[in-house]
Design a binder for these strands. Structure first.
Lengths: 196, 196
DNA sequence: GTCTATACCTTGATAGAC
DNA sequence: GTCTATCAAGGTATAGAC
């Protein structure tokens, strides 16, 4: 982990390159030679910085998730009303897609498979944690009367989670809508539906 | 393609086994030895039935898509009102997840990447076709007044498409809700939102 | 921090016997 | 329709020079 004095260490540069490739082509589809080529070095040189290809994706995912969940925790602990918290959680997620699209994409594409291995067990744990965040917010919403009480909480949780994160498949920072505009529309549809 | 007289040819069995593995582990992560092991034969024997691993996934995806789009075409051509058509398209999609979960999963996970290669160009074409189906239905809905007219059609299309297909990640036929129940809830949220 | 050189393994695929 | 046997290519990773 680099100090503040080296905002872009060589190590971080290489991780950024690897993240882009993992996101675009998939972890398994990306070879260490691909990463080295993109960085302008030879594949063997990568091993001066990292133990293995696996440890690269490990560091990419764990670093990202730590930052993301710190934000969720902050929202959960706040004393706003349920609807505001739910909206904030949605917006924080779209912001993550905007600022860390590769990390989100890797997580979306690879977590299910990687989570089966011991080394990546924390991915499954984070998944459980995320579920608790959303379910807590939804139940609070139903209890305080701002959400419909005929909702199936589990299905609603999945609906929101999927709706939010899957946007990483098409959203491209700086092209078309801003992440705020996208979040606005999504929140609106989610809360009020599309029918007249 | 097997005749009706051989509902489960050896070839079809092998394709079904491959589809399950491709869906669970990813195309690249699945080796021909994995497929052969699961079928109780040796990897070389697979090549009596198929040219290559690629041709297996090719046949799995193209067969599935042909059947799915035939259903969309039927809906588009019907003379029901826009809201009914939209609902039917959503329900047909959930039914596909129920009856062909592996094929849907493979398409969701691999199409973006595979679509770049000539052989799988048809995947990109089907994607365009699917977009036309949904956008047509949404625009018809707005025009006939059953859908809100302040919707961003493109974002709404993506919202619906993603919301529907991503369910393949957690939906398991025969466990928990039926696909009809899931479709009911999704249609309800989509049309009316989750707020009171 | 990178290169040269290379070891070792896994993978997709083939040819011919049974 | 499957097995035996085998290959060439491409994959991750290592050791030591620069």
């Amino acid at each position: 982990m680099s100090a503040v004095s080296t905002p872009e260490s060589r190590r971080d540069q290489l991780l950024a390159i690897a993240a882009r490739l993992f996101a675009e082509k998939g972890f398994k589809n990306t070879t260490v030679r691909d990463i080295a080529d993109a960085a302008g070095i030879l594949s063997g040189s990568l091993y001066h910085h990292f133990d293995s290809k696996e440890s690269m994706v490990d560091e990419i995912l764990s670093t990202f998730q730590e930052a993301l969940f710190a934000q969720y925790d902050e929202i959960l602990a706040s004393d706003e009303d349920a609807r505001t918290k739910l909206e904030r959680a949605v917006r924080v997620s779209f912001e993550a897609i905007d600022q860390h699209p590769f990390e989100v994409a890797i997580y979306q594409n690879e977590a299910d498979y990687l989570g089966k291995f011991d080394r990546f067990r924390y991915l499954a744990d984070r998944n459980t944690q995320s579920r608790q965040v959303w379910v807590t917010l939804i139940e609070e919403g139903v209890r305080t009367g701002v959400l419909r009480n005929d909702l199936d909480v589990t299905l609603t949780y999945r609906f929101i989670r999927d709706t939010v994160w899957v946007a990483v498949r098409w959203y491209r920072p700086g092209r078309g809508h801003t992440h705020t505009e996208v979040a606005d529309q999504y929140v609106r549809i989610l809360l009020d539906g599309i029918s007249t």
